[in-house]
């Protein structure tokens, strides 16, 4: 068999990546995990998680991420803070480029996750000046202020409820006539006096001298626009996959999510994908970690069956 630096390279340090690391470390694979910023993934910005089994009272996203990280470290997983810039495929050998250096490997598991989608209505100039994607980071800066939140899924509703610990008033702007969030979260939102839901509407603009002062909201049914005087705008309208570094190496859907089969195999033999980065019907921690365990099993099978 050809010599490579690694059996397996894991690209990403969220729940899927750390789980892949746990399984690979226990399988005594020669493995490395590359994470570009900090291990944990999207989960570390989540205020509270109550749908991950084993934590009967719920657990903060940061604490859950830290526990996964410590579990992987305790099993001896090698984690390096490196930005994977591209992957090249040469038959059975894959080269993972890290900017200043590159490594060769037999298999790769892509678990690079996803990032929050932007509105693209000119909000980038207000990043950190009222516009936020992280309630646990920035919520306390909006104590007794009025804020707008955008979205209608689990994240939008859960984080909006969290924000009401701080804010005076929260307008939840949702493009449909009903929320998509799971029922228990909807019930809590409807009961919360500080939350006012603005139905059938989108954020069409925002302005302010140095920071957000005003958020423009358009009703998509009537076309009517109104201004909401708000100092913050929290955006939770879904996620976009972190797959730009892959170029056209793997087949992806129109949104950039990686196609896989039920064994987490991508269009390139020996490259697997797991978690939010793939075309999964459900983007949850509990599904991401399941994907990752399957991906490691598939990677082991691939190595066993390598030709040379």
């Amino acid at each position: 068999m050809k010599q490579t630096d690694y059996d397996l390279v894991i690209v990403g340090g969220g729940p899927a990546g750390l789980t892949a690391g746990i399984y690979a470390a226990r399988a005594r694979m020669n493995v490395v995990l590359y994470e570009k910023a900090a291990p944990g993934g999207q989960v570390i910005v989540s205020d509270w998680i109550e749908n991950y089994p084993g934590f009967p009272d719920g657990i903060s996203g940061y604490d859950l991420g830290e526990k996964m990280l410590n579990q992987a470290k305790n099993l001896g997983l090698n984690i390096e803070i490196e930005d994977v810039t591209s992957i090249q495929v040469d038959g059975e050998i894959k080269t993972v480029n890290l900017g200043k250096k590159s490594v060769s490997t037999k298999t790769v598991i892509i678990v690079s996750g996803a990032s929050p989608k932007k509105l693209n209505i000119g909000e980038s100039q207000f990043m950190g000046k009222g516009v936020s994607f992280c309630a646990t980071c920035d919520g306390p800066f909006f104590r007794d202020k009025t804020v707008v939140a955008v979205g209608g899924g689990d994240t939008a509703v859960q984080e909006s409820i969290f924000l009401t610990k701080f804010v005076k008033k929260l307008y939840l702007i949702h493009r449909r006539g009903e929320l998509r969030a799971t029922k228990i979260l909807q019930e809590r939102a409807h009961k919360n006096d500080k939350i006012e839901i603005v139905w059938d509407s989108v954020v069409s603009g925002m302005d302010g001298l140095f920071a957000v002062e005003n958020v423009r909201v358009r009703n998509i049914k009537t076309g009517e626009e109104k201004d909401i005087k708000a100092q913050g705008c929290f955006i939770w309208i879904g996620i976009t996959p972190n797959t730009a570094f892959l170029g056209d190496v793997l087949k992806m859907d129109d949104g950039g999510f990686i196609y896989t089969n039920e064994n987490m195999e991508t269009s390139v033999p020996g490259i697997f994908a797991a978690g939010d980065v793939r075309t999964t019907p459900l983007k949850q921690i509990v599904t991401a970690v399941g994907d990752a365990a399957i991906a490691v099993m598939s990677a082991e099978h691939y190595i066993e069956n390598m030709q040379d």
Binding site: A37, A38, I44, V45, G65, I81, T136, C137
Partner: peptide, 14 residues
Amino acid sequence: WAPWCGPCRAIAPT
């Protein structure tokens, strides 16, 4: 930073 900010704690080792 602040102790309640997950990302702040997460990037500290970096």
